[in-house]
Simulated scan of single mutants.
Amino acid sequence: MNKVLHLLSSVNTHSSTSREIGGLLVEKLKLAQPAASFIQRDLTVHAPPHISPEFLFSLGTPEAEVLAASREYLTELKDADLLVIEAAMYNFTIPSTLKAWFDHIVRAGHTFQMTANGPEGLLKNTKAILVLGSGWIYSEGPAKARDHQEPYLRTILGYIGITDVETIRIEGTALGEELKQSALQRARARVAEVVETYDVRT
C-alpha cells in the first residue's frame, strides 16, 4: 500500500460515530503501513460543487475551469491504492456532499470506459473500506430494504472497477446509549479485523 485517500462526509464534525471509527481505522492503518502516504479530504468542510449545465457541456474540454475540482478529485483517486470512505446515513442514503464527489469522479475515459460489452471500470487495482454509521439497524431485519447507503456505494464503486470492498458498520446508535456503545465496540473489533486482513492481502 502506497497511498490512501480518506474521505469524510458526516456533517456532525464533533460527535459522529462514523468519524470516530473512521479516524481509528486510519490511525491503525498508519501504524500497520508506516511508509504509506495519506490524503484526507473532508467533504463537509470543503464541499464539492454540485455539477452544473456548464460542467456537462465542458466535458469535451478537459482544461475547462469548471472541471478544476473534478480534475483534482480524479488525480487523488487515481493515485490511491486504498479508498477509505466514511459516511453517515441521511434519509436512507449517503450525504449529498459524497454524492457530489462521485458525480465528479465517475467520468468516461477516466474511471470507466464503454466497451462492446457495456461499461468497464478502470480502477481495478484500487481497494476500498467503507465506514458506515446509522441511527437504526439496516444490515438485517425489517429496515434492510431501506438501506440505500452500502448498496449504492458498492454499486458505484463497482462501476468504476473497485470491487474489493470491506465494510465497517456502526448501526443502531439512536436506539439508546447501551446499544450505541455496543455498536462502537463491535466496530472497533471490526477495524482490527479489517486492518489485519488488509495487511495480509497487501
Rank of each mutant, 00 (worst) to 15 (best):
M1P: 09
M1S: 09
M1Y: 05
L5I: 04
H6P: 04
L7S: 10
L8H: 13
L8D: 03
S10G: 06
S10W: 01
V11W: 07
V11L: 12
S16F: 09
T17E: 15
R19A: 07
R19W: 00
E20V: 13
E20P: 01
E20M: 14
E20Y: 08
G23I: 13
L25M: 02
L25Y: 04
L25R: 12
L25V: 11
K28E: 15
K28P: 09
K30W: 01
A32E: 08
P34S: 10
A36W: 13
A36K: 05
A36M: 12
S37H: 08
S37W: 08
F38E: 04
F38K: 00
D42K: 06
L43W: 10
V45T: 11
P49I: 04
H50C: 03
H50K: 03
H50W: 11
I51P: 10
S52L: 04
P53F: 14
E54C: 11
E54L: 14
E54D: 14
F55N: 03
L56D: 08
S58A: 15
S58W: 04
S58I: 14
L59G: 08
G60L: 07
T61M: 12
T61V: 15
P62M: 11
E65H: 11
V66G: 12
V66C: 12
A68N: 07
E72N: 13
Y73N: 14
Y73D: 09
L74A: 14
L74K: 09
E76Q: 15
E76H: 13
D79F: 02
A80H: 01
L82I: 06
V84Y: 00
A87D: 08
A87F: 04
N91R: 09
T93Y: 02
P95Y: 06
P95I: 00
W101P: 01
F102D: 04
F102P: 00
H104G: 09
I105N: 12
V106A: 06
R107I: 15
G109S: 03
G109V: 10
H110T: 11
F112H: 13
F112I: 04
Q113C: 10
Q113K: 15
M114W: 15
M114G: 13
T115E: 08
E120D: 09
G121P: 05
G121H: 09
L122M: 13
L123R: 11
N125V: 13
N125Y: 07
L130K: 02
V131I: 12
G135A: 13
W136R: 15
E140M: 11
E140H: 15
G141F: 13
A143C: 02
K144P: 02
A145Y: 02
R146Q: 12
D147K: 02
H148F: 15
E150N: 05
Y152W: 01
L153I: 06
L157M: 12
G158T: 06
I160Y: 14
G161V: 02
G161M: 08
T163F: 14
D164V: 03
E171I: 01
E171W: 04
E171S: 00
G172P: 00
K180Q: 09
Q181L: 14
S182Y: 03
Q185L: 08
R186F: 10
R186Q: 14
A189M: 00
A189I: 05
R190N: 02
V191H: 00
V191C: 01
E193D: 05
T197C: 02
V200K: 14
